[in-house]
Design a protein around this nucleic acid. Structure first.
Lengths: 220, 220
DNA sequence: CTTTATTTTTAGATTAATCTAATTTTAATT
DNA sequence: AATTAAAATTAGATTAATCTAAAAATAAAG
């Protein structure tokens, strides 16, 4: 079963959106995440359904299949290995790699990926701290820690929330502490447990212990 | 001016055919060299003409332009740099690289190629002994002679092959006639053009005219 | 210098991926 | 529950690359 480049990109996007805990993945979400129009997504969903990498019922929703997950993880594995190569070997900055890795991930050659993996010394995480699936799609994900339990100067990436109420999510959205944001703990106030963090190397943000304890961080 | 992957492949084929000394490049030649149908070639020639990478008059013939040459050399440069990477760093056998390099050459990123070039230590020749153009398309090529055209007792170094099919490369590998091998012509059989050579001052080797004519030697 | 053969090009389809505009379905709001 | 709003899908076009079959142009042979 082989997928075209476009199909791989859609499937990867669907996988990522599925993993982000959200209830179900909408056509609009996908369109937004890969900069295309909903009409194009509808069409592609039909095709991906036929190829059985997703289960799809129109107007109703979709669910990624085991096959789909495996293929998506293969693409993600390639993407992240190339990112390691670009940063470790070719000295790219971590914010310069994405676009190029986006192209490299579609090169088809299992031998190439095996050799690249070995050459890079079987890395387990990419330069952004995201785990690299092994050739079977298994991910050794790192334990996550509540933001309020991190120490000063520790950094990481927001990967999940404990409280997923609409109010909380709206709040996080407003202050820019979205899932995926890279953060660093700048300060902790002992007596009330509140914290000050740096978000995406730009914005500083204060939050109460109550809020911080509901944010899960993947440490890097 | 950017070319699609297909356009790059056509242009590369045209460049190579043009360089092979032949009078002019025919539609059929191109079709044969990239395994496609003449009808498709006609269509593409029109497009390449519009993009001014070739001068094209239908039924009459074509001529690659300076712009076309520059772009073709850029693609060839990328292809050969990737081949060096695959062989030197990922330990591919020299007959395994072509297919993968064929994909990698289309990755678009000047930064990537600059960095790769530096990482490989600015190689001047690829694993098949073919020269790698610099970023301006300049090629430092060495004068070479086909092995079957050398005289008895002449010596030299194998620097390239004309036929780079996997089958041929595997054969050469097996008999020990690798790129870089130092050879000396011991005997030539007049009536069938076959030759006997000494490889690395150790091993004698018989080869047909057909094989010898596909091996290029830098005379010493 | 005609006729035949070869080469090249056009005409018309097909596949993949995309778009805009229109329609249909589902969700939200009085 | 009826109406409005939002989301999703279909219809119909477009672009790129390809093909087969037919037509046109050039080259080769008698």
């Amino acid at each position: 079963m082989e997928l075209t480049t476009a199909e791989e990109n859609y499937l990867k996007a669907i996988y990522h959106l599925s993993e982000e805990g959200k209830k179900s993945v909408s056509t609009n979400d996908i369109a937004a995440s890969i900069q295309t129009k909903p009409a194009s997504v509808s069409d592609m969903l039909r095709k991906l359904g036929e190829k059985e990498v997703i289960q799809y019922r129109k107007y109703y929703g979709l669910q990624i299949t085991e096959l789909g997950k495996r293929l998506a993880l293969q693409t993600i594995r390639k993407h992240r290995l190339w990112e390691v190569f670009l940063v470790d070997k070719l000295h790219f900055a971590w914010d310069e790699v994405h676009e190029v890795a986006e192209q490299l991930e579609h090169i088809q050659s299992t031998l190439l990926i095996e050799r690249l993996d070995a050459y890079l010394n079987y890395p387990k995480f990419d330069p952004h701290g995201d785990p690299i699936p092994d050739e079977y799609g298994d991910v050794r994900s790192r334990p996550r820690i509540a933001l309020n339990e991190m120490n000063i100067d520790q950094g990481g990436q927001i990967v999940a929330v404990k409280d997923s109420s609409a109010a909380f999510l709206r709040y996080l959205d407003k202050v820019g502490a979205y899932i995926g944001a890279r953060i660093k703990v700048l300060d902790k106030v002992e007596f009330d447990g509140s914290v000050e963090i740096l978000v995406d190397q730009k914005k500083t943000l204060f939050m109460s212990k109550d809020v911080a304890s509901n944010i899960l961080v993947l440490q890097s």
